[in-house]
Design a binder for these strands. Structure first.
Lengths: 342, 342
DNA sequence: CTGAAAGCGCTTACAG
DNA sequence: CTGAAAGCGCTTACAG
């Protein structure tokens, strides 16, 4: 059986064909395709006309082979992020990355990596000269491999690295501590005095940084920062953390929750117990994800510019690949989005 | 400034190097690398030893150029799916796809496509011989382009196509109607007699199919299928659809909700109104996503084998690329997961 | 500003 | 079962 696509496939026009159609050499066509300024304007036009007429698309493989660039970038995503998170935040970052790359000639190769280790095949692929650079989304713990990768090709990470030895890496992040402080100070301004927090996993830098921000805001106000419970960024964990906080201090009047999803869980517990939000207990989340507007009351939360983070990651990698100087740490600002929960 | 990675980069060993190390010709090394059975076993061993010793990784560009295969597959994701859905279902499918491809030599190129149209650049890339095949996740409406693509290279779609003219496409889906019928029949068995449904957008085939299943189960029981409200698969839309249903018929005693997320919204409305679940109103969702276990009560829902769907999409495309015969429609089974909401 | 020529690292008939 | 040779479609010094 011959599939339809096989029957209709035609040989694509080559540089050679364009050259003879335009009456110039292949070198000249190549220069035009690559945007050289060293070609006479009328020749450029003639070549472009031929390209358009023949519907010429350069062969990437040939180009890569000759130029020794793959024109490919690896997008390395920890499997968990893709799988369990199914996270709007992550989705927005990827969206930003693709947008940041779309004006370039680079193509994005998706690589899921398990959190604890990277497969030998993936390692070989990444280290074997198959991509010109890489973007690593989210935290990761296969430190040795990523260090090796970073020493081989330009790599931009999403999120401040957890391990101090990686602090020389290029990364894009948000100022988590500042965002958390912002949220906590807002609660303080609203007259709240017994402010707890629901934090994320201690092995995630972002979670720690948010806790730090909460602590510093409380300390700045001369208040103790002792009411902390831990979740894992899921709704269910937010609910049980909220129960714990309530049991530990019934006088609690506000909570800074380190993610919107956990805040959703917390709100449901508050409602269960007949505690009104924001009257009795005010709540501020973190992310400003779609979840923030699907709760009742809607969440006051710290906005992360997730798409912009992806864009910046792409831009920084592109700059690195172009040999330009790039700031190692790109810290994007957060802002408080006031809705109804505080 | 010379970046670290530039300083340490070394020329990768070539086929040539392996050949001379093993004392054979390049042809022979190529055969071994490509798993030919026409090479003497001891020669195979010698070559593999040289490959291991030199840490040889074939150059993809050269291989592509010579073999006229790109060894790349496009993963085309409607932007909305990636962005708004941030959907665990989608995430699981992608996970399945990458797993299905990991034993192959194909690499996955991520392409976000807007729902209404595909950018000229993306079209050129996809049509221009840069990938050997494509996987299109989720529904899509740029029918003309996808038909053209399908006529050019092998394509596997996720989800039954909405447009009849695309019925010749290869696709992987779940039997949405059967799953919905399963859910509705379960509700019937539980003695429910006034069963409504919260459906998804009418321009999504999966939503329509689920409604069809609900209708047929009710009709099979001699019951009218007239209590239907529409959402868009988000939590908020599930909540308002639930309100609508309740307002239209206060005697309603069960609802088949076409997605877990909408079921979450429905549950919150039921709770708001003091209606107990499952005692007064039973609820069955669809997806069996993480959301299903984060509600209170936990959701009885129709399980979709999302990771398996991704795996199947990958396998089918691989088979197509290998020139094998593949069934055009792969319909995977659903099953009811009974928890607490019904 | 332009062209001829070499070369990028593989695969693949073709001989043997 | 193995090798010599041509060729895949580009880029890139090198001359001019």
């Amino acid at each position: 059986m011959i599939a339809a696509h096989q029957a209709t496939r035609r040989a694509a026009p080559t540089l050679e064909a364009v050259a003879s159609a335009a009456g110039v050499s292949r070198s000249t066509v190549s220069r035009v395709v690559n945007g050289s300024t060293q070609v006479r304007p009328d020749v450029v036009d003639a070549v472009n006309a031929a390209i358009a007429r023949l519907d010429y698309v350069p062969n990437r493989a040939a180009r890569s082979l000759a130029s020794r660039q793959t024109m490919a970038i690896a997008l390395i995503v920890p499997e968990e992020a893709a799988r369990f998170f199914g996270d709007p935040f992550f989705a927005a970052i990827v969206h930003g990355i693709t947008r940041g790359l779309e004006s370039s000639d680079y193509v994005l190769n998706l690589q899921l990596a398990s959190r604890t280790s990277t497969s030998p095949k993936t390692k070989k692929y990444l280290l074997g000269g198959n991509v010109d650079g890489a973007i690593v989304v989210s935290h990761h713990s296969d430190v040795e491999f990523f260090s090796e990768l970073d020493a081989t090709i330009p790599v931009v990470f999403g999120g401040r690295p957890f391990h101090p030895e990686q602090h020389s890496n290029y990364f894009v992040d948000v100022d988590n501590a500042a965002g958390a402080a912002l949220a906590t100070e807002y609660l303080l301004e609203k007259g709240r005095s017994r402010i707890g927090t629901i934090s994320g996993p201690v092995d995630m830098q972002a979670a720690n940084d948010r806790t730090t921000g909460w602590v510093s805001a409380l300390n700045g106000a001369g208040l103790p920062a002792d009411l902390i419970a831990y979740g894992d960024f899921t709704m269910a964990s937010g609910a049980s953390a909220m129960r714990e906080l309530l049991d530990r201090d019934p006088n609690l009047d506000a909570v800074f929750v380190a993610s919107d999803l956990m805040a959703m869980g917390a709100i449901s517990v508050l409602r269960e117990r007949g505690i009104s939000v924001p009257e009795q207990v005010s709540l501020v989340g973190f992310d400003d994800s779609p979840a923030a507007t699907s709760t009742d009351p809607q969440l006051t939360t710290v906005h992360q510019p997730s798409t912009e983070m992806g864009l910046r990651m792409a831009h920084n990698l592109l700059a690195l690949l172009a040999g330009e100087e790039v700031e190692r740490q790109s810290i994007l600002p957060t802002r408080l989005v006031v809705r109804d929960s505080a």
